[in-house]
């Protein structure tokens, strides 16, 4: 959380993660080169670079796509989510090296523009097996570029969290394009059951994790509600841990009811930064702290502590026989609500 924009907001944790990313990428490239030159010593350096960085980008993309659902299924993965953006930008650079060298080797040495050559050198667009697979990789690279270029908080703040999130959900389109790029390209020529099986296993893992997380979320959203004079029954006080929250669905909104210092308070569950789940965070220094990037809000009014200006909606609570009831009508963002004491 910062007041002004910096190119990269590093702290000791982020520096540590970034070192791990850089060293892992370097190690992968070195091992790939050693294996290639051991089994195929006449391989050219251009081909080595194309294959090493292409496969690296695919491995990284799988890790990136796994982090989101893993964090929703198990909060022990949340610290990795905190650094996912740097991993994404690093993956884009790996994909860019792959795409750049491929463009140079296959399309830059002719007498037509490389982009024209990319789209026109193979016009078999009606065939599945002979489809110009490089076009698919190029389109995926454009999406990854748009995502990397807008990954900074400056764009997040100016595009709005909703638009920014929709833009970055294009990573799923890029993922499908990349799968098609590999299956219609390399795998048509390198018919190794090992590499094909590896990517199929990766796809099953990623789609399985996303579906598991989606159905877990759906279960949370489908909790039945009981009404009492317009107030909705949530749970008993004992069901909420101290300094933690219970997430409850009201119409289309999720609400996080926090228990802290002998008090209860309810705020909207969606963080203003990147839409993180506030109810999965905890109270730190008296503030609700988003588990994704550490944005903070005061539980009694949903406002970020000064000088920050983010605000979320608040809700009225009522306690009757140790059972918590909530007024389903959200108050204006940042509205002060008297906490309920228990």
């Amino acid at each position: 959380m910062a007041l002004d924009y910096k190119l990269v907001i590093w702290n000791s944790f982020k520096k540590q993660y970034d070192k791990i990313i850089a060293v892992s990428m370097l190690l992968y490239i070195v091992v790939f080169a050693i294996v290639t030159f051991t089994f195929n010593p006449e391989s050219s350096i251009e081909t080595l670079i194309i294959r090493a960085f292409g496969s690296l980008a695919i491995v990284m993309l799988h890790i990136i796509l796994a982090i989101g659902p893993l964090s929703r299924l198990n909060d022990q993965f949340l610290p990795i989510l905190y650094n996912r953006r740097h991993l994404g930008v690093s993956m884009f650079f790996a994909a860019l090296v792959h795409g750049g060298f491929s463009m140079f080797q296959f399309h830059a040495l002719g007498d037509v523009h490389p982009i024209y050559s990319l789209f026109a050198s193979n016009m078999d667009y009606n065939s599945l097996i002979n489809f110009p697979f490089q076009v698919l990789g190029f389109l995926a690279l454009l999406i990854l570029f748009a995502m990397a270029a807008t990954s900074h908080d400056f764009f997040l703040a100016n595009l709005s969290a909703r638009v920014w999130k929709r833009l970055h959900m294009l990573v799923y389109v890029a993922y499908v394009l990349i799968i098609a790029h590999v299956f219609l390209g390399t795998f048509q020529q390198e018919t190794s059951p090992f590499t094909i099986g590896f990517l199929i296993l990766g796809f099953i893992t990623i789609s399985g994790l996303h579906l598991a997380a989606a159905f877990k979320e759906r279960k949370t959203d489908s909790n039945k509600t009981e009404e009492d004079e317009g107030w909705i029954k949530v749970c008993t006080v004992d069901e909420i841990e101290n300094d933690r929250a219970k997430v409850f669905k009201l119409a289309n909104d999720r609400v996080a009811i926090f228990k802290y210092d002998g008090k209860l308070a309810a705020i909207h569950n969606v963080c203003k930064h990147q839409g993180g789940p506030l109810g999965e965070g905890k109270i730190i220094d008296g503030c609700v702290t988003c588990p994704w990037h550490g944005y903070q809000y005061l539980p009694n009014n949903g406002q970020s502590p000064p000088p920050y200006t983010e605000k979320v909606a608040t809700y009225q609570l009522r306690l009757k026989d140790a059972i918590i009831y909530i007024n389903p009508n959200a108050l204006e963002e940042g509205t002060e609500v008297e906490p309920v004491y228990f």
Binding site: S207, E217, G275, P277
Partner: peptide, 17 residues
């Protein structure tokens, strides 16, 4: 994520699967 984004996610991954 809000409810509509969760729904979009679910639909996307069911389609992809």
């Amino acid at each position: 994520m809000d409810a509509s984004q969760r729904k979009v996610h679910r639909i996307i991954w069911m389609s992809v699967a």
